[in-house]
Write a protein that binds this DNA or RNA. Structure first.
Lengths: 114, 114
DNA sequence: AACACTATTGACAAAAATAGAATAGCATGA
DNA sequence: TCATGCTATTCTATTTTTGTCAATAGTGTT
């Protein structure tokens, strides 16, 4: 049955796999809200992510108690927004993530060295 | 409803997201069969992957015609095994992947530079 | 009031990932 | 020869994740 090609799509793009550590990194730098994180991710090279992906990841991380959010009261330009900041657990999670990032970096380096 | 923590698991580990380019890279170096790829992935830092992950990815890539397999006839030590090698399409796919890897590398670098 | 922009949430279908069982050839020793 | 263990691959059920779209909603502008 040598033939019979079925699928077209590829696996989870690297981009998506990096959203979580990227958000942690950004929030650790300074508390932010989701909408601005959406833009900040682009500065990390993670472009054109669907907003839902970002908000969902934020909620998941909050469920894990890596981050904590509160409604931003000194809200100037629009509807209420959540301001996220890192918890102590999130700090630890970031450290763990950084180790994983280093490993991934090594793997990639190895692959690229033709 | 500030509280009510639901989930425990994290997203797809980076490790898994790197299986596809890693396999392409290895096969491009020299044709191999699945079982040995399982071991070779470890040399790329992708450790303790479930065999299913590797075999599934191989089948997916074969469906995409990135790789081609044939049963290895000069089979010495066990049951029949598939020998995989890269197609021309796979060559191109590897190049595309390498660009993605470079981008990911940049993103990671950016995250790690505290 | 209609519209555009900021901001977040919810829900659903489709795809992917996890893990374990099933299958099977070969080699070795009891 | 029968059990055991290793090599090697496939299948399938279940759980998770992802992609996408719609819904909600406040604020400012025309």
């Amino acid at each position: 049955m040598e033939n019979g090609h079925r699928r077209e799509k590829r696996r989870t793009p690297l981009k998506v796999a990096l959203v979580e550590p990227a958000l942690l990194t950004l929030i650790s730098q300074s508390p932010r809200h989701g909408y601005s994180l959406l833009a900040d991710l682009e500065s990390l090279g993670l472009e054109s992510l669907h907003p839902s992906v970002v908000y969902r990841t934020l909620r998941q991380m909050e469920d894990l108690e890596w981050i904590h959010s509160e409604w931003d009261t000194d809200n100037n330009q629009g509807p209420p927004r959540r301001l996220y900041n890192l918890t102590r657990i999130g700090d630890a999670a970031l450290l763990t993530w950084r180790e994983e990032l280093v490993k991934a970096q090594d793997s990639i380096q190895e692959m690229l060295r033709n």
